[in-house]
Design a protein around this nucleic acid. Sequence first.
RNA 1: GCGGAUAUGGUGGAAUUGGCAGACACGCAGGAUUUAGGUUCCUGUCUCUCGCGAGGUAUGGGUUCAAGUCCCAUUAUCCGCACCA
Length: 805
Amino acid sequence: MAVPFNHREVENKWRKRWEEKTVNPKDPKKPKYYCLDMFPYPSGSGLHVGHWRGYVISDVWSRYKLIQGHYIIHPMGWDAFGLPAENYAIKMGVHPAKSTADNVKHIKEQINQIAALYDWDMEVNTTDPNFYKWTQWIFVKMFKAGLAYEKEMPINWCPSCKTGLANEEVVGGVCERCGSPVTKKNLKQWMLKITAYADRLLNDLDKLDWPEKVKKMQTDWIGKSYGAEVDFPVDGREEKIRVYTTRPDTLYGATFMVLAPEHALAASLATPEQKEAVDAYILQAANKSSVDRLQNKEKTGVFTGSYAVNPLNGAKVPIWLSDYVLADYGTGAIMCVPAHDDRDFEFAKKFDLPIIQVIAKDGVEDPDLQEAYVGSGVMINSADWSGQDSEKIKQEAPHILEERGIGKKTVNYKLRDWVFSRQRYWGEPIPIVHCPHCGAVAVPEEQLPVLLPEVESYQPTGTGESPLAAIDEWVNTTCPQCGGPAKRETNTMPQWAGSSWYFLRYVDNKNDKELVNREVADKLLPVDMYIGGVEHAVLHLLYSRFYTKFLCDIGVIDFDEPFHKLFNQGMITGKNGIKMSKSKGNVVSPDDLVRDYGCDSLRMYELFVGPPELDSEWDERGIDGVYRFMTRFWNLVMDNKDKNVPASKEMEKIRHRMVNDITSRLESFSLNTVISGFMEYNNKMIDLAKKEGGIDRETLETAVIMLSPFAPHIAEELWEQLGHTDSVFHQENGWPKCDEEMMKDDEVEIPVQVNGKTRCVISLPADVSKEDALKAGEEAVASRISGKIVKEIFVPGKIINFVVK
RNA sequence: GCGGAUAUGGUGGAAUUGGCAGACACGCAGGAUUUAGGUUCCUGUCUCUCGCGAGGUAUGGGUUCAAGUCCCAUUAUCCGCACCA
């Protein structure tokens, strides 16, 4: 009797072996392959089976590339600054540095259970001064390049997290992190000019092998639009009001104008009769939270009493204020064409303003317009434009306006600059010194890092000041420029600061002279494959692209996109698709499963549970099926390894087909069907081995090699049992290859249909001629044919169909 | 409201280019082994029908010799954006 399958013994044995000698030695002769996981923040709750999935996927891919002959860069680190770590620390009443260190230790142990190829020599931690020195260094470089600037303005403020937020961190009016409604707060903030990169961030998406969904989300977030700015003089005054429109073709239909309540001219446009109402409206708008603004879509507004002049036809149009116009997009003022814009239509109906149709689908005006017509058509009521195609006018209008000196062609973006300061303790101090004489001065590079000081109270103050502001001896310093007394910037950076560039540091994490050595970077970067959840589509992934482009521009690296290929894995949820969380009590820990079924079986089941890109419900029971497969495969190899049976034609066919199927499924990331493929071919091999009295060595070895990225321990053991002394991951010939000729059957089964319904299946030579096939098919279904055959279809290898009348 | 994705047995899910729907597993049922339970092995398992056969991939149409797959409309669920002029 062969050695029975004992996952615990096998796994313990190989863990030790791999510790003694890595299977992924740095070999400069091999081409690199950089496969990266989104690094976790070390929370106190540890890993559940959902966290495993992404790490298993990336490890399977890494090991596959390893066997193909690459040197694998597969690092792991800790995104340990930021709100989650700090909130956890506050909750548990310990210093964030302490709780972070404890959590890192714990999660590292849990990650090691996965038996991934992680190279811990490359480990980084964003809270390590040797790391955040370079996070600060990048900020200084951006400051010097004019990309980091201070501005006082109303920003998104989370009253629960007690800090300002970037636009990207506000989802549907609530804080992305804690779900509290976001308010506005007027604060002096550090901003990063990500808008300077808007076009490159947009255009370079084309270069990336990313899911279309993520590209689209970024495209929409950047929100580029083409249109025109048009100046409307204010009737009887000197000022002009500039508006932005994407529909200059509808200019003759502009019947009123709306300014955002925050517009600079809003108050001064009020006539004496309207002043009281206007002031009240401006005040009311200022107190409205963003959630109110989102939830209550009923249009409100107030007439200023003033009029503007349509520069094209001299028409006088009333100027209104309304909060449906955003102050910080375009010019904060719009011309309103109710006939051709839904929002303007609604506003015009509510306040009984005139509606002039200027485009008609068929050129005929609708006297009773019930809704805005936003499509294209023939221009009407538009002086010399009338009768022309509206799309043509849309293209030409900006130039016409420019010629007449009343407007110009313009481009606008939804993307806003990045609010970069946080009023919290647990982050990188912003390396700036405020000097009464010199203003904001960057801390000299040789003085970096600006260490995060120890404090008694690291709880957020909620006042808009960081807890750091209370530490006088830290705040008070000298100006690096003039030497006079000065104060340190007390805001910290957002969590995204470290994660925007950490992937560059892994490959040179001990370098204290440079962020990354250029030669090393040229050789080992960028990331070839990035694996993580979709939740960072416009946060981390946009910020990282921005940072990478900047670092490329200043010559630190020579590529301007960080992640060549991106894969978003779906979530593993609890019952009924509910996200696993401690509070829901539906968290499944991998610990028991690893103990009872082994790491390899859990790895396999993580993939088998469903398509990797979709969410999957965790169903504990299914893992039995994977475990049974492992046992059967183990027994198959053990029972046959010493038989030295020659390869039969039939067995060779199975082998080549197995290589073909498994490889193509793996290449297309259909990992759940790779696992079912292993099961299927295992059953086939078992059946045939029974019939033929054994199974040849090459087939066994091929199966073991292909299983090794998925179940590395068991594959190594079986490889050794098959008589090899080197690791299964070191294959001179790379990944198993298949020969299409060897996969072919001599005889093929072909269904024969009558009127599209299968009547029988016949066996024919693979290279049968059309005539012979049809003849054989007709004979086979002769008894089922009652009428006259009007059409005969033969698709080689697929189908025979007779159309009968 | 706009945009995107998804919809297949009791369950998770398979199905290159349109070519035998339900692979592979879970579960369930029956049997063998076992003192018994568990394990393991074998058989069955879309629905209706004793059977022949018929029907069947969210719903309704269409294209085709042939549709889960392509086209049109509808419904449901999930995700993204949400007054961006």
